Simulated assay, not measured.
Amino acid sequence: MKFKLILLFLLLNICFVAFSQDKQSEKSQKQDITVTEKGLIKVSIMYPYAEGKTFNMEYYETKHMPMVAGFLGSNLVKYTIEKGLSSGIPNQPLPFMAIGTFYIKSLSEYQAAIAPNRDAIRADFVNYTNVSPVILVSEVIK
C-alpha cells in the first residue's frame, strides 16, 4: 500500500512537471508571436533633432498618435512612441527627438486611410512640434 502511494505521488509529480513545461512552452510561443512582427509593414515617423526645435511628448502621446491610430482602424496591429535620449556615438548630437511607429498589415490600406486625413494630420503638427518629420516605410523581416 505504501509503495502504491509513493508510486501515485511520483506519477502525479511527473504529470505536474510535464503540464507546467507545456504551459511554459505555450507562453513562450505566445510571446514569440507578439515580439515577432515579420511580414508587417512598419511606418516610422522620425523627428530630427536640431537646435531650437521643440517637441511636446505629452501631446504627441495623448492626442496626435491616438488620432492617427484611429484613422487606421483594424489595419493597425500596434503603435509605439519613442523619446530620443542620445546618439549611439558619444559626444555626438541626438539624431531624433522622437519616433512614432505604426505596425500595419497592409500598405495600401494604410495609404487609403491616411489620404483623406492628411490635412488634419499635418494641421495637428503645430500642436506638438516645429519639426518636419522624416518618414520611412519598411517591411519587418525579423
Rank of each mutant, 00 (worst) to 15 (best):
V137E: 00
K83W: 03
L85T: 07
R122A: 05
Q111A: 08
K78P: 00
F19D: 14
E82N: 05
I41F: 14
I89P: 02
A112P: 14
Q29N: 08
M65V: 15
K83V: 10
D22P: 01
P66D: 01
M65I: 13
K83D: 09
N13W: 07
V140A: 02
S74K: 04
F96N: 15
D32G: 07
G84T: 10
E51R: 01
F71Y: 15
D124H: 07
Q111L: 09
L136F: 08
K83G: 03
Q24T: 04
M1V: 11
E139K: 10
N130H: 14
N75L: 02
T129K: 03
G100D: 00
I45Y: 06
N75R: 11
T129M: 07
A69Y: 07
G100L: 01
D119N: 13
H64V: 09
K42R: 13
Q29R: 08
F125M: 12
K27G: 03
L10N: 04
T62D: 12
K142Y: 15
R122I: 14
S132Y: 04
V35Q: 08
Y49D: 13
N117M: 04
L72K: 00
R118V: 09
F125S: 05
F102D: 11
L107R: 08
K23Y: 05
V43F: 05
Y103G: 03
P90V: 14
K4V: 12
Q29K: 11
Y103S: 11
F55P: 08
I14R: 03
L5Y: 13
G73C: 13
L12Y: 01
S108T: 15
Y79G: 01
G84H: 08
M1P: 11
E109Y: 10
V17L: 02
K23N: 04
V43P: 01
I81Y: 00
G70Q: 11
A123L: 02
K105Q: 06
N91A: 12
C15E: 07
P95E: 15
Y49V: 00
N75K: 10
K83F: 05
M1R: 05
F96S: 10
K105W: 02
Y128P: 01
K142C: 09
E82P: 01
A123M: 02
G100R: 01
F55W: 05
L85N: 00
A112M: 05
Q92T: 10
P116H: 12
D32Y: 03
F16S: 01
Y49T: 06
Y59C: 07
A50N: 15
M46F: 01
F96Q: 13
I45S: 09
E58T: 14
A113F: 06
G70K: 04
I45D: 00
V35T: 04
T101A: 09
V126G: 04
E26T: 04
N13Q: 14
K105N: 13
K83T: 10
